[in-house]
């Protein structure tokens, strides 16, 4: 026993050293300060003045490929875009599934309550997501909560699947026109997630060593082949979105598309890093109206 004691102590000390090992080397872009409100774009790209009123966009800019980035593609959102597209079909499908789950015998209204609706009213719910969920014990986006609540009603709606995003589109469409409002400035889990998200946004990764901010903070308005880089402000108001070249796409699926395009190993929808970026980008969309159903090319 006497002999084993120093050995045990040493082992404990090295185990401690192993768990508190220094963070691995990572490269970060310069950490920009952002205003957690959509008007913060005026000190980043300045394009906000062209898209702050989604009902009155300059249609001439929308039709000009050199200028449409200044509208932050809001000409594809309602009310400016009044056409019927795949996003509307998704909203219909989502409504069907929502009522199916919300009217289960003996559990009427439980699904809506689980999503966070007060007295079954979905109005304004989307504006409050992502939020801290006591039952999940972490900050979660709407799609993760839909998966969680649907499972309670005995239905599998995987995060990122068409039906999950369809329910999300339906729930969000009940808040169309209402400004996004999440509190990322008071101390709490949401603020921590926002700060982590800001850090991930500036973290270089992948085969070509890029961070989100490498383009979307420092190269806004410049060309990358045929596309023009847009601002990170006000960008999450229209998700999940109908992609004409893809399908219904949740925000986390969009992150996967970004990762693949920049040759970075993608993560699963609902992963913590993605949720943190979602919180960060939603903070930068505070004050901008939910714009669903929407489409993008």
């Amino acid at each position: 026993m006497k002999r084993a004691l120093p050995l045990l102590l040493l082992l404990a000390a090295t185990a401690q050293a192993a768990t508190s090992a220094p963070a691995p080397y990572r490269q970060f872009d310069p950490m920009e300060d952002y205003l957690p409100h959509v008007k913060g774009d005026m000190s980043l790209s300045g394009s906000y003045k062209h898209w702050k009123d989604p009902a009155n966009l300059d249609w001439r800019m929308a039709g000009n490929p050199e200028e449409n980035w200044k509208l932050n593609w809001k000409f594809m959102d309602p009310p400016f875009n009044a056409s019927v597209h795949g996003g509307h079909f998704a909203a219909d499908r989502g409504e069907e599934i929502f009522h199916e789950l919300n009217r289960k015998a003996g559990r009427t209204g439980k699904f809506a309550t689980c999503l966070g609706a007060r007295k079954g009213n979905l109005k304004g719910l989307r504006s409050q997501y992502p939020m801290y969920r006591k039952d999940l014990r972490h900050v979660a986006g709407l799609e993760e909560v839909i998966e969680h609540c649907a499972a309670k009603e005995g239905r599998e709606l995987q995060n990122g699947s068409y039906d999950n995003s369809a329910v999300s589109v339906y729930v969000a469409s009940q808040s169309t026109g209402m400004p996004i409002k999440i509190n990322v400035t008071s101390a709490g889990p949401l603020k921590s997630a926002y700060e982590r998200g800001r850090k991930v946004f500036h973290a270089r990764a992948g085969r070509i060593n890029l961070a989100c901010s490498s383009c979307h903070t420092y190269q806004i308005g410049l060309h990358l082949r045929g596309t023009v880089v847009t601002t990170p402000y006000g960008d999450v108001a229209h998700y999940p979105v109908y992609r004409t070249r893809y399908q219904l796409q949740s925000l986390h699926l969009r992150f996967i598309e970004c990762n693949l395009a920049t040759r970075t190993q993608p993560l699963k929808p609902g992963s913590q890093a993605y949720t943190d970026i979602e919180v960060f980008l939603t903070g930068l969309t505070n004050g901008y109206p939910v714009s669903v159903p929407s489409e993008r090319d």
Partner: peptide
């Protein structure tokens, strides 16, 4: 990921 229309699975 591949989104399959009218499916709860990704």
């Amino acid at each position: 990921p591949k989104v399959v229309v009218n499916s709860g699975k990704l």
